[in-house]
Simulated assay, not measured.
Amino acid sequence: MNLVLSETYSRYKDDILNILKNFKNDGVVVGHGNRNVVKFFVVDNLKLNFKSFKQHNIINRHVYKYYRKSKSRRSYEYAQMLIDKGFFTPKPIAYIENHDFIGVTSSYYVSEQLEDVFTLGDVLYDHSFTDREEIIKAYTQLIFQLHENGIIFIDNASGNFLIKKIDGKYRFFLVDLNRMSFYDEISISKRLQNFERLTNDLEIIKLISAEYAKLSGQTSDFCYNKIVDFAKKKAFKLKVKRILKFYKFFLKN
């Protein structure tokens, strides 16, 4: 086992190890993840969020041990990096990797469990949500600042932004951090492509386009047309993928 623990939380080492022993049967499940299992556990009034990553196939198990950082390690390190750059994410506490002679057998990312939050998805899908337009603009400003820092948050989906109102302002916490790309400079096309999986709602895309245009010096029409085009292409790819998956299942049976 490889356990890397933040110095701030070093006193919880034994608690974390005990939780891992009983992870399958204890804890409170968070969300409806099909690939990964997320649970929180309470230790001395502190809520610890454990994300157990789905078991990899034999090739990826080998890759994540010898050639590439595991998803849990990337989550932990990217969280620290985001905080260092002034962004927000649940505080990183630890990551754990279990190995055998082939590769990684299981891995976990541990962070703080946030309370009294809602997701960006709650805002996007509820047209009567309080301060909806303000929140969407604030989200766009966040993505722009990530881009300005050379960061593409690949899993830019509405469920990966937890929002908490603090002192009258909405604060965004990024989660599901293991997939990010880093650049010295990001072209405007790649920046706008980063919105492709967020939504196909044209009203929302208009709001995002207007705000991003204001921040980037582009025109609203340019941003809008680019995002819509990328979103349509992404939706088509996902549709084709689902069809192929269906036929693959049908042919097997």
Results as ranks from 00 to 15, higher is better:
L46A: 07
L3N: 13
L215P: 06
K237C: 05
K24D: 13
N25H: 12
Y125K: 04
M180L: 12
S128V: 05
G159V: 04
L142G: 00
F129L: 10
K54G: 15
K164P: 10
A210Q: 08
L198N: 06
I154M: 10
F40I: 07
E148N: 13
N45I: 08
L142W: 02
K13E: 15
V38N: 07
R74T: 09
V28D: 12
L142C: 05
D131T: 08
L177P: 06
L20I: 12
I166R: 00
Q193R: 09
R171F: 15
I102S: 04
K164F: 09
F23V: 00
V63Q: 04
N49H: 15
M180K: 04
K85S: 04
K137W: 03
N149P: 10
F144P: 01
Y9T: 00
K69T: 05
I93D: 06
L202E: 02
N2L: 10
K51Y: 01
V29P: 01
L146D: 10
S52I: 05
E77T: 03
V43S: 12
A235K: 09
I102Q: 01
N156L: 02
K232R: 11
K51F: 10
Q55S: 01
F88R: 12
V43I: 12
E115A: 15
T130G: 13
K137E: 15
E211K: 02
E7P: 02
G33L: 10
T140G: 06
K252N: 12
A213P: 11
E196Y: 06
K252A: 15
L162Y: 13
N200W: 04
F249T: 06
D155G: 09
S189M: 09
L120I: 00
G150I: 03
H56L: 03
K226Q: 13
D84R: 14
F222E: 11
D221S: 14
R68A: 01
F161K: 02
N200A: 04
Y224G: 00
